[in-house]
Design a protein around this nucleic acid. Sequence first.
DNA 1: GTTATCTTGCACACTAGTGTGCACAATACG
DNA 2: CGTATTGTGCACACTAGTGTGCAAGATAAC
Lengths: 207, 207
Amino acid sequence: MTTRAPRRDSVENRAGILDAARATLATDPRASIDVIARSAGLSRRTLYGHFDDREALIRELISVGAQRFNAIAESVTDSDSRLALARLAAQLWREAAHVQVAAALALDEAHVEHTADALAPLRRTVAALARRGQEDGSFRTDLTAPTLARLIEEVARTVVSRTDASSTGAVDLAVRTLLSIAGLSWREADALLTAHPDIVDSQEVSA
Amino acid sequence: MTTRAPRRDSVENRAGILDAARATLATDPRASIDVIARSAGLSRRTLYGHFDDREALIRELISVGAQRFNAIAESVTDSDSRLALARLAAQLWREAAHVQVAAALALDEAHVEHTADALAPLRRTVAALARRGQEDGSFRTDLTAPTLARLIEEVARTVVSRTDASSTGAVDLAVRTLLSIAGLSWREADALLTAHPDIVDSQEVSA
DNA sequence: GTTATCTTGCACACTAGTGTGCACAATACG
DNA sequence: CGTATTGTGCACACTAGTGTGCAAGATAAC
């Protein structure tokens, strides 16, 4: 009487669709369901077996992605706000694949709201960081903390979505850009990264 | 035998369509022809009397806009590269209405090429400015000149298209952001703007 | 006042996409 | 094996948009 366990290929296909959607939508946020399904090696009809809607597919994509980098936001605990910002940027960059979809989709009117909700924890972290950085004299004070936070968010979005993630030194560029936006001169940023080479290189989390 | 002069209302309507398109597409780059026509107070059918295509309408919009700010690029002649960048940013901001459409449309795959072509002069100016700024020690040298130029372009696009143009102090924000990206610390940028209040205030061109 | 020019509404054909129903084939699971 | 689950192709209805043809009406130019 009890229902059977779900077939293995079914769950694999579902994951495959999500991967394909992530890759496809990162380049073209308006890619059709058919293109996504095909690039996952499945038929359009099958995709509708896994997701009710285009909407449902995208919502899941956003939720999963947001979860990943909300976690990152929590993991950054440096007391030096400049370091915290640098590390946050670098860590997020490593999730570039996930970030890019979110960044691309966030620009689409239909999903801004959901994206904003899902990313609320990350945004709170950034806002708090901006405030702290101003208070301890690390960040610029010619802008209000909320404005600075907004600026950091927007520029981060831009850098992430308009940079070839595979090119060497891309992480470096992203981090330096955000430090500049925070108000550091490029020499300060440079000195900071030289003093803490672990930020840009590989992750400090042991395997 | 000779053809009549075109009717006055006709040329006005054509201009009206361009204005409406500019305003509408700045918010939603995918607005339908019908929406644009209606917001110009005309019927969809009439719009097609003035422009062959959606394509033709957009091409003209881009061309006219590009012309305007290529002219601006030429008008900036400060020998101090920091001043030149600041003034360029401020001047372009005053053309915000035109810039915003271009910025929005430039993100659309279908028009990137045309936009890039039309903006070539401006981009050349920015590239030269980046090089000059590095040579005279004003701008950061941790990035190559082309990378810096690209970064300036992208961030400018972001600031322009994602800022409420009417809000007070928006010009100020735009200029400060770009100076930061160029590598100045926020204090340097602040000092520069204090020393040259004409940049952010009103235009220095006599009426 | 004529008249060429312009605007408009309506119907039409066309494209590209979404989401569903259904019958049939394949297959992983028990 | 048997069978419930899943994938697939096809037809279908639907939406939203583009671009055109045409006839009738408005109106600025002469």
